[in-house]
Protein backbone atom coordinates (compact mmCIF):
# COMPACT_ATOMS: atom_id res chain seq x y z
CA UNK A 1 0.00 0.00 0.00
CA UNK A 2 2.71 2.45 0.98
CA UNK A 3 4.71 1.46 -2.08
CA UNK A 4 1.68 2.04 -4.29
CA UNK A 5 1.12 5.46 -2.77
CA UNK A 6 4.74 6.47 -3.28
CA UNK A 7 4.77 5.21 -6.86
CA UNK A 8 1.57 7.09 -7.69
CA UNK A 9 2.91 10.24 -6.07
CA UNK A 10 6.13 9.99 -8.08
CA UNK A 11 4.13 9.63 -11.28
CA UNK A 12 2.66 13.04 -10.50
CA UNK A 13 5.99 14.77 -11.04
CA UNK A 14 6.07 14.45 -14.85
CA UNK A 15 2.39 15.35 -15.09
CA UNK A 16 2.86 18.46 -12.97
CA UNK A 17 5.93 19.41 -15.01
CA UNK A 18 3.84 18.96 -18.15
CA UNK A 19 1.17 21.19 -16.65
CA UNK A 20 3.73 23.94 -16.02
CA UNK A 21 4.96 23.55 -19.60
CA UNK A 22 1.44 23.90 -21.00
CA UNK A 23 0.72 26.92 -18.82
CA UNK A 24 4.06 28.46 -19.78
CA UNK A 25 3.60 27.89 -23.51
CA UNK A 26 0.00 29.11 -23.46
CA UNK A 27 1.03 32.34 -21.82
CA UNK A 28 3.96 32.79 -24.21
CA UNK A 29 1.42 33.04 -26.99
CA UNK A 30 -0.87 35.55 -25.28
CA UNK A 31 -0.65 39.32 -25.19
CA UNK A 32 2.68 41.10 -25.39
CA UNK A 33 3.52 42.04 -21.78
CA UNK A 34 5.26 45.25 -22.72
CA UNK A 35 2.05 46.54 -24.27
CA UNK A 36 -0.06 45.47 -21.27
CA UNK A 37 2.29 47.02 -18.73
CA UNK A 38 3.45 50.14 -20.56
CA UNK A 39 0.31 50.87 -22.57
CA UNK A 40 0.01 51.78 -26.24
CA UNK A 41 2.30 54.80 -26.26
CA UNK A 42 5.53 53.29 -24.97
CA UNK A 43 8.73 54.01 -26.87
CA UNK A 44 10.75 51.19 -28.39
CA UNK A 45 13.48 51.89 -25.88
CA UNK A 46 11.19 51.54 -22.89
CA UNK A 47 9.82 48.29 -24.29
CA UNK A 48 13.32 46.94 -24.85
CA UNK A 49 14.32 47.78 -21.29
CA UNK A 50 11.23 46.10 -19.88
CA UNK A 51 11.78 42.99 -22.00
CA UNK A 52 15.28 42.79 -20.57
CA UNK A 53 14.02 43.31 -17.04
CA UNK A 54 11.40 40.55 -17.41
CA UNK A 55 13.96 38.22 -19.00
CA UNK A 56 11.99 38.04 -22.23
CA UNK A 57 15.12 38.56 -24.34
CA UNK A 58 16.48 35.17 -23.25
CA UNK A 59 15.95 31.99 -25.32
CA UNK A 60 12.60 30.35 -24.62
CA UNK A 61 14.00 27.19 -22.97
CA UNK A 62 15.95 29.38 -20.54
CA UNK A 63 12.83 31.34 -19.76
CA UNK A 64 10.97 28.09 -19.02
CA UNK A 65 13.82 26.84 -16.83
CA UNK A 66 13.85 30.07 -14.85
CA UNK A 67 10.06 29.93 -14.59
CA UNK A 68 10.14 26.42 -13.07
CA UNK A 69 12.94 27.41 -10.68
CA UNK A 70 10.92 30.41 -9.52
CA UNK A 71 7.86 28.18 -9.07
CA UNK A 72 9.86 25.80 -6.90
CA UNK A 73 10.69 28.73 -4.65
CA UNK A 74 6.98 29.56 -4.47
CA UNK A 75 7.43 32.67 -6.60
CA UNK A 76 4.50 33.03 -8.99
CA UNK A 77 5.56 36.41 -10.32
CA UNK A 78 3.77 39.74 -10.09
CA UNK A 79 0.53 40.87 -11.65
CA UNK A 80 1.22 43.01 -14.72
CA UNK A 81 -1.72 45.19 -13.84
CA UNK A 82 -1.41 45.84 -10.11
CA UNK A 83 2.18 44.72 -9.54
CA UNK A 84 0.96 42.74 -6.53
CA UNK A 85 2.59 39.33 -6.00
CA UNK A 86 0.41 36.65 -7.61
CA UNK A 87 0.99 34.25 -4.71
CA UNK A 88 -0.45 36.84 -2.32
CA UNK A 89 -3.54 37.44 -4.50
CA UNK A 90 -4.15 33.71 -4.65
CA UNK A 91 -3.61 33.29 -0.91
CA UNK A 92 -6.33 35.86 -0.26
CA UNK A 93 -8.78 34.51 -2.83
CA UNK A 94 -8.36 30.75 -2.71
CA UNK A 95 -9.94 30.13 0.73
CA UNK A 96 -13.21 31.62 -0.54
CA UNK A 97 -13.26 29.08 -3.37
CA UNK A 98 -12.36 26.25 -0.99
CA UNK A 99 -15.27 27.12 1.31
CA UNK A 100 -17.69 27.36 -1.62
CA UNK A 101 -16.49 24.07 -3.10
CA UNK A 102 -16.59 22.26 0.24
CA UNK A 103 -20.12 23.39 1.05
CA UNK A 104 -21.15 22.29 -2.45
CA UNK A 105 -19.55 18.88 -2.16
CA UNK A 106 -21.17 18.32 1.24
CA UNK A 107 -24.56 19.18 -0.25
CA UNK A 108 -23.92 17.03 -3.33
CA UNK A 109 -22.77 13.96 -1.39
CA UNK A 110 -25.52 14.17 1.20
CA UNK A 111 -28.43 14.65 -1.19
CA UNK A 112 -26.90 12.59 -4.01
CA UNK A 113 -26.35 9.49 -1.88
CA UNK A 114 -29.68 9.90 -0.07
CA UNK A 115 -31.71 10.24 -3.27
CA UNK A 116 -29.72 7.51 -5.00
CA UNK A 117 -30.26 4.98 -2.20
CA UNK A 118 -34.00 5.70 -1.88
CA UNK A 119 -34.41 5.50 -5.67
CA UNK A 120 -32.67 2.14 -5.78
CA UNK A 121 -34.55 0.65 -2.83
CA UNK A 122 -37.86 1.85 -4.26
CA UNK A 123 -36.99 1.15 -7.89
CA UNK A 124 -39.68 2.16 -10.43
CA UNK A 125 -41.64 4.07 -7.77
CA UNK A 126 -42.85 7.62 -8.39
CA UNK A 127 -39.98 8.91 -6.27
CA UNK A 128 -37.51 6.98 -8.39
CA UNK A 129 -38.92 8.32 -11.66
CA UNK A 130 -39.13 11.90 -10.45
CA UNK A 131 -35.69 11.98 -8.91
CA UNK A 132 -34.04 10.42 -11.96
CA UNK A 133 -35.79 12.97 -14.16
CA UNK A 134 -34.52 15.66 -11.82
CA UNK A 135 -31.03 14.16 -12.03
CA UNK A 136 -31.17 14.24 -15.82
CA UNK A 137 -32.20 17.90 -15.69
CA UNK A 138 -29.42 18.58 -13.21
CA UNK A 139 -26.70 17.45 -15.60
CA UNK A 140 -28.31 19.18 -18.58
CA UNK A 141 -28.65 22.68 -17.14
CA UNK A 142 -25.93 25.26 -17.63
CA UNK A 143 -24.66 26.07 -14.16
CA UNK A 144 -24.58 29.84 -14.74
CA UNK A 145 -28.19 29.79 -15.89
CA UNK A 146 -29.29 27.84 -12.81
CA UNK A 147 -27.42 30.41 -10.73
CA UNK A 148 -29.22 33.29 -12.42
CA UNK A 149 -32.61 31.59 -12.07
CA UNK A 150 -32.05 30.92 -8.36
CA UNK A 151 -30.97 34.54 -7.98
CA UNK A 152 -34.04 35.76 -9.84
CA UNK A 153 -36.46 33.66 -7.78
CA UNK A 154 -34.99 33.71 -4.29
CA UNK A 155 -33.22 37.08 -4.23
CA UNK A 156 -34.94 39.38 -6.71
CA UNK A 157 -38.55 38.12 -6.35
CA UNK A 158 -38.80 36.60 -2.87
CA UNK A 159 -35.98 38.50 -1.20
CA UNK A 160 -35.01 35.51 0.94
CA UNK A 161 -31.33 35.63 0.12
CA UNK A 162 -28.86 38.40 -0.74
CA UNK A 163 -28.28 38.83 -4.48
CA UNK A 164 -24.53 38.36 -4.46
CA UNK A 165 -21.28 38.85 -2.55
CA UNK A 166 -19.62 37.11 0.38
CA UNK A 167 -21.00 38.83 3.47
CA UNK A 168 -23.22 41.70 4.55
CA UNK A 169 -20.82 44.64 4.45
CA UNK A 170 -22.54 46.41 7.35
CA UNK A 171 -21.48 43.69 9.74
CA UNK A 172 -18.19 44.32 11.43
CA UNK A 173 -15.92 41.44 12.11
CA UNK A 174 -12.18 41.24 12.27
CA UNK A 175 -11.32 38.10 10.31
CA UNK A 176 -7.93 36.59 11.06
CA UNK A 177 -8.11 34.16 8.13
CA UNK A 178 -9.87 34.08 4.76
CA UNK A 179 -11.89 31.03 5.80
CA UNK A 180 -14.77 33.24 6.95
CA UNK A 181 -17.37 30.51 7.42
CA UNK A 182 -15.10 28.21 9.39
CA UNK A 183 -13.63 31.05 11.46
CA UNK A 184 -16.97 32.55 12.48
CA UNK A 185 -18.20 29.05 13.36
CA UNK A 186 -15.15 28.30 15.51
CA UNK A 187 -15.32 31.69 17.22
CA UNK A 188 -19.04 31.23 17.79
CA UNK A 189 -20.11 34.50 16.18
CA UNK A 190 -23.58 33.49 15.09
CA UNK A 191 -24.85 36.67 13.42
CA UNK A 192 -21.79 36.72 11.17
CA UNK A 193 -22.12 32.99 10.54
CA UNK A 194 -25.77 33.41 9.57
CA UNK A 195 -24.97 36.19 7.12
CA UNK A 196 -22.20 34.08 5.59
CA UNK A 197 -24.53 31.10 5.25
CA UNK A 198 -27.18 33.25 3.56
CA UNK A 199 -24.60 34.47 1.07
CA UNK A 200 -23.13 31.07 0.32
CA UNK A 201 -26.48 29.25 -0.02
CA UNK A 202 -27.45 30.06 -3.61
CA UNK A 203 -23.98 29.80 -5.19
CA UNK A 204 -23.40 26.51 -3.37
CA UNK A 205 -26.72 25.05 -4.51
CA UNK A 206 -26.08 26.15 -8.12
CA UNK A 207 -22.60 24.69 -8.03
CA UNK A 208 -23.73 21.45 -6.39
CA UNK A 209 -26.62 20.70 -8.77
CA UNK A 210 -24.86 18.71 -11.46
CA UNK A 211 -22.64 16.85 -8.99
CA UNK A 212 -25.69 15.93 -6.90
CA UNK A 213 -27.35 14.58 -10.03
CA UNK A 214 -24.34 12.50 -11.04
CA UNK A 215 -23.79 11.12 -7.54
CA UNK A 216 -27.49 10.22 -7.28
CA UNK A 217 -27.42 8.35 -10.61
CA UNK A 218 -24.20 6.58 -9.73
CA UNK A 219 -25.39 5.61 -6.24
CA UNK A 220 -28.67 4.29 -7.62
CA UNK A 221 -27.10 2.03 -10.24
CA UNK A 222 -24.42 0.89 -7.82
CA UNK A 223 -26.91 -0.01 -5.08
CA UNK A 224 -29.12 -1.79 -7.63
CA UNK A 225 -26.16 -3.86 -8.71
CA UNK A 226 -25.18 -4.77 -5.18
CA UNK A 227 -28.63 -5.74 -3.88
CA UNK A 228 -28.80 -8.46 -6.53
CA UNK A 229 -25.72 -10.18 -5.12
CA UNK A 230 -25.83 -13.49 -3.31
CA UNK A 231 -24.59 -12.21 0.01
CA UNK A 232 -27.50 -9.79 0.17
CA UNK A 233 -29.89 -12.67 -0.39
CA UNK A 234 -28.09 -14.51 2.39
CA UNK A 235 -28.44 -11.54 4.70
CA UNK A 236 -32.16 -11.39 3.98
CA UNK A 237 -32.56 -15.14 4.28
CA UNK A 238 -31.07 -15.18 7.74
CA UNK A 239 -33.84 -12.83 8.79
CA UNK A 240 -32.04 -9.50 9.04
CA UNK A 241 -34.26 -6.45 9.02
CA UNK A 242 -34.39 -4.81 5.57
CA UNK A 243 -32.88 -1.69 7.02
CA UNK A 244 -29.86 -3.59 8.32
CA UNK A 245 -29.47 -5.31 4.95
CA UNK A 246 -29.38 -2.01 3.09
CA UNK A 247 -27.28 0.05 5.47
CA UNK A 248 -24.94 -2.57 6.87
CA UNK A 249 -24.39 -4.85 3.90
CA UNK A 250 -25.39 -3.21 0.66
CA UNK A 251 -24.37 0.40 1.12
CA UNK A 252 -20.85 -0.37 2.26
CA UNK A 253 -20.02 -2.03 -1.03
CA UNK A 254 -22.23 0.10 -3.21
CA UNK A 255 -20.47 3.28 -2.15
CA UNK A 256 -17.01 2.22 -3.33
CA UNK A 257 -17.52 3.31 -6.97
CA UNK A 258 -19.33 6.41 -5.71
CA UNK A 259 -16.11 7.54 -4.05
CA UNK A 260 -14.45 7.79 -7.45
CA UNK A 261 -17.29 9.88 -8.82
CA UNK A 262 -17.10 12.18 -5.82
CA UNK A 263 -13.40 12.65 -6.42
CA UNK A 264 -13.89 13.35 -10.09
CA UNK A 265 -16.57 15.87 -9.18
CA UNK A 266 -13.94 18.03 -7.51
CA UNK A 267 -12.60 18.88 -10.92
CA UNK A 268 -15.96 19.80 -12.32
CA UNK A 269 -16.72 21.80 -9.18
CA UNK A 270 -13.53 23.79 -9.65
CA UNK A 271 -14.50 24.37 -13.28
CA UNK A 272 -18.00 25.27 -12.21
CA UNK A 273 -16.65 27.65 -9.59
CA UNK A 274 -15.25 29.78 -12.40
CA UNK A 275 -18.78 30.33 -13.70
CA UNK A 276 -20.66 30.38 -10.37
CA UNK A 277 -18.27 32.91 -8.89
CA UNK A 278 -18.72 35.14 -11.92
CA UNK A 279 -22.51 35.00 -11.59
CA UNK A 280 -22.60 35.68 -7.84
CA UNK A 281 -19.58 38.05 -7.65
CA UNK A 282 -17.93 35.57 -5.30
CA UNK A 283 -14.43 36.78 -4.43
CA UNK A 284 -12.74 33.44 -5.15
CA UNK A 285 -10.09 32.20 -7.51
CA UNK A 286 -12.56 31.53 -10.35
CA UNK A 287 -13.64 35.13 -10.73
CA UNK A 288 -9.99 36.14 -10.30
CA UNK A 289 -9.00 33.87 -13.21
CA UNK A 290 -11.75 35.22 -15.46
CA UNK A 291 -10.81 38.81 -14.70
CA UNK A 292 -7.13 38.01 -15.27
CA UNK A 293 -7.89 36.48 -18.67
CA UNK A 294 -10.05 39.43 -19.67
CA UNK A 295 -7.27 41.83 -18.68
CA UNK A 296 -4.56 39.73 -20.38
CA UNK A 297 -2.73 39.69 -17.02
CA UNK A 298 -0.54 36.70 -17.87
CA UNK A 299 1.24 36.03 -14.53
CA UNK A 300 -2.12 36.01 -12.77
CA UNK A 301 -3.61 33.70 -15.41
CA UNK A 302 -0.61 31.37 -15.07
CA UNK A 303 -0.85 31.33 -11.29
CA UNK A 304 -4.58 30.65 -11.06
CA UNK A 305 -4.67 28.00 -13.80
CA UNK A 306 -1.59 26.29 -12.37
CA UNK A 307 -3.05 26.22 -8.88
CA UNK A 308 -6.39 24.79 -9.99
CA UNK A 309 -4.71 22.12 -12.13
CA UNK A 310 -2.36 21.16 -9.28
CA UNK A 311 -5.22 20.87 -6.80
CA UNK A 312 -7.21 18.82 -9.30
CA UNK A 313 -4.32 16.40 -9.88
CA UNK A 314 -3.68 16.02 -6.16
CA UNK A 315 -7.34 15.35 -5.40
CA UNK A 316 -7.38 12.69 -8.12
CA UNK A 317 -4.35 11.06 -6.53
CA UNK A 318 -6.01 11.01 -3.12
CA UNK A 319 -9.15 9.49 -4.65
CA UNK A 320 -7.17 6.78 -6.42
CA UNK A 321 -5.38 5.84 -3.22
CA UNK A 322 -8.58 5.95 -1.21
CA UNK A 323 -10.23 3.73 -3.79
CA UNK A 324 -7.46 1.14 -3.59
CA UNK A 325 -7.72 1.26 0.17
CA UNK A 326 -11.51 0.85 0.23
CA UNK A 327 -11.69 -1.96 -2.30
CA UNK A 328 -9.52 -4.87 -1.21
CA UNK A 329 -9.99 -6.47 -4.64
CA UNK A 330 -7.68 -3.90 -6.21
CA UNK A 331 -4.08 -5.03 -6.29
CA UNK A 332 -1.67 -2.20 -5.98
CA UNK A 333 1.28 -3.50 -7.85
Amino acid sequence: MLQYTIRRALLLVPVLLGVTLVVFLVSQLTADPTKVILGQHATAQQMEALRHELGLDKPIYQQYGLYVLRLLRGDLGRSWLTDAPVAEEIRVRFPHTIELTLVSIILAVFFGVLVGVISAVKQYSLFDHLSMLGALLGVSMPIFWLGLMLMNLFSVRLGWFPISGRIDLQLEFDFKTQFYLLESLLRGNWSIFKSLLEHIALPAVALAASSTALIARMTRSSVLEVIRQDYIRTARAKGLAERMVIYKHALKNALIPVVTVIGLQFGSLLSGAVLTETVFSWPGIGSLAVAAIQNADTPLVQGTVLLVAAVFVLVNLVVDILYAYLDPRIHYT
Binding site: V15, L16, G18, V19, V22, V23, V26, T30, G267, S268, L270, S271, G272, V274, L275, A289, V290, I293, A296, V301, V305, V308, A309, F312, V313
Partner: peptide, 13 residues
Protein backbone atom coordinates in the same frame (compact mmCIF):
# COMPACT_ATOMS: atom_id res chain seq x y z
CA UNK B 1 -5.05 17.58 -15.40
CA UNK B 2 -6.95 20.75 -16.23
CA UNK B 3 -10.64 21.09 -15.43
CA UNK B 4 -12.35 21.30 -18.86
CA UNK B 5 -13.87 24.77 -18.91
CA UNK B 6 -10.77 26.37 -17.41
CA UNK B 7 -8.48 24.90 -20.08
CA UNK B 8 -10.93 25.96 -22.79
CA UNK B 9 -10.92 29.50 -21.36
CA UNK B 10 -7.11 29.54 -21.28
CA UNK B 11 -6.92 28.34 -24.89
CA UNK B 12 -9.45 31.00 -25.89
CA UNK B 13 -7.21 33.58 -24.22
Amino acid sequence: AFPGVLLAIAIMA
